[in-house]
Amino acid sequence: MNAATVMLCLPLGLVTATLGRLVHTGRPRISVLWTVLAAVLAALAGTALAAAFVPTDTAGVSWITLVLQAGLATGAVALAEVIKPGRSQTAHQQK
């Protein structure tokens, strides 16, 4: 994994996180920072996974790698939404 690959994961994670926030119904339980962090880290994991299993001598864009990155980033944001505890309703209602 070189620096150009890592730099590609940052905008991909940002776009995936933004799309995930737009598609999500209701109030998100995690902050924008957690959403972006989960998406970028998952995009990096997708890059590493693709480097291990996808041939690197493709001409042009490796669509398999991009789909793998986007899929993992979307899944990571959904998982972070479930795992990270959000505001409790009782504490919010008491204020």
Rank of each mutant, 00 (worst) to 15 (best):
L12E: 09
L44F: 08
M1E: 12
G71S: 03
G75L: 10
I83M: 13
A59K: 04
A38G: 11
R29G: 02
L10K: 00
M7R: 06
P55H: 08
A4M: 06
A52P: 04
A51N: 02
G26P: 04
A80G: 13
A51C: 02
A48F: 13
F53L: 12
W63D: 05
A48L: 14
T18A: 12
S88Q: 10
T35V: 04
A43S: 09
I30Y: 03
A39L: 07
M7V: 12
P11H: 10
A78W: 15
S31G: 14
A91I: 14
T65C: 04
A3S: 05
L8P: 01
Q69S: 03
Q93F: 04
L44I: 11
S31Q: 08
V77E: 07
I64S: 05
L37Q: 07
V36L: 10
V77L: 04
L22F: 13
A45F: 11
A43F: 14
Q89I: 08
T56K: 05
W63G: 08
P28G: 07
F53R: 09
T56L: 15
G20Q: 10
A91V: 13
A39K: 07
A76Y: 00
Q69G: 02
R87D: 07
T58P: 03
G46T: 12
A42S: 07
L33F: 06
V36N: 06
H24L: 14
H24G: 03
T56H: 08
S31A: 03
N2R: 00
C9Q: 00
G75D: 08
W34E: 09
G20I: 01
A48D: 01
N2I: 02
V32T: 15
W63L: 07
S88I: 06
P55L: 01
V6Q: 00
T90L: 12
P28E: 02
